[in-house]
Design a protein around this nucleic acid. Structure first.
Lengths: 223, 223
DNA sequence: GGAATAATATGAGATATCTCATATTTTTGA
DNA sequence: TCAAAAATATGAGATATCTCATATTATTCC
């Protein structure tokens, strides 16, 4: 992790302002943090000292269960908040956040700004929207995971993450995200190939019949 | 549904104030609604005209999937908000909300107060907390549903809902909530009886070994 | 009060998904 | 550059969960 200092920090702030998110000056004690791929932005179980706002990059929220299973709860992208749960709640089990690409965040020290943040309607309004979408999204994922087999959820995931007709997510990550075993994921992917929805090419999968995948994914929709 | 009028309304407002939740006068156009058991407070797919704040009673959030399966997403209790998603988001698939006991809510007309509400730090702060807890709760349910079999989740649910050592939830509701088939729920309940964790008595189940259920439920915890 | 509806109950076979074992290939780090 | 670690791959048997069929109570409503 790198904390931008001096000229580097000044330049970054100049070109990437988040002043519009607050109605007061937040820059005085704000830091700019850069994390490398696979680095932990927040360690599971350890309360963070900052509220983060992601400017660039992608990250993943993980939680480890007592039976050793790991769930990838969600992906984090640019313009998302991190650590807002800890800002709001005194009691909270902190989840792990891991960068999956180089990630640059603004880091706002909680102890310094907590009171001001919780009094700022502009900030709270944006955060409320962010949280409402997050809650809705989790509710949708939850109910879908119980109502549909992997076949449907995977079809949706493939269509969402494929780039130019090619799907190439890491199986291990996808297992954690969709909450199924590695074995079963491979099994359903093989089925998709057998049905000619996908064509395997080394580690990539070419989408051959997106309409078939669409049909499978479509039944999840409405929410 | 009954809308309190005249003296009844005046008295109810006098004894149940929510003035402390806002920094402006919200009472002028606020209504008081009472719903009977099983009545729909919000119909699935229909945008509500009010932001509700539940004063008394309990309700359930439902969503219907395209394959006909119904998910009971969550329970709603006193001091929860309803319709806050529609207040915040212009595009949102509205879920159904059904009263499960007599339920009294304050109903704040959205078109009238939207702007003021979204500018009120006091209101937004409470709502943000409410949403953060909701999001966390959904995330926990989601990851648990994928990481643990029904046995563990049911044990937790039984302990949470039992009253004086007796569990008597309706099977149909529980199926929708835990996202399993009726058949399977009964199967696991029968197992619990066979293991002597529970003793069936007509439609009730007496908890005989809460420590065993506790052990099963415990592994979900940490979050 | 009786017919219709909802809730409970149980069996049996099907399927979705998991666990474990093991092999190969790729990536990483000293 | 090489050994260790991570990711991919596949088989086979186990288990969690589902579907469907059917019967028996409760509950609701005219």
């Amino acid at each position: 992790m790198e904390v931008y200092k001096g000229e580097k920090k000044r330049l970054y702030l100049e070109y990437n302002s988040i002043a519009h998110l607050f109605s007061f000056q937040v820059e005085a004690f704000m830091e700019v943090h850069e994390y490398q791929r696979d680095e932990w932005i927040i360690q599971e179980g350890m309360r963070p000292d900052f509220l983060f706002y992601v400017m660039e990059g992608k990250a993943k929220i993980y939680v480890t269960h007592q039976n050793g299973k790991v769930s990838l709860i969600n992906f984090i992208n640019a313009h998302d908040y991190i650590g807002e749960m800890e800002l709001l709640n005194d009691v909270y089990y902190t989840k792990g956040i891991q960068a999956s690409t180089k990630t640059v965040c603004f880091a706002i020290p909680i102890h310094r700004y907590r009171t001001q943040l919780l009094d700022d309607a502009k900030f709270l309004r944006e955060l409320t929207k962010f949280l409402s979408i997050k809650a809705t999204h989790m509710a949708a994922k939850y109910s879908q995971s119980l109502a549909f087999p992997l076949e449907n959820r995977l079809a949706d995931f493939i269509l969402q993450t494929a780039d130019e007709g090619i799907y190439k997510e890491k199986h291990v990550t996808v297992c954690d995200y969709l909450g199924v075993s590695y074995r079963h994921l491979l099994h359903v992917l093989t089925q998709f190939c057998a049905k000619n929805y996908l064509k395997k090419d080394g580690r990539n999968y070419h989408i051959k019949q997106s309409h078939s995948l669409n049909e499978l994914a479509e039944v999840l929709k409405n929410q």
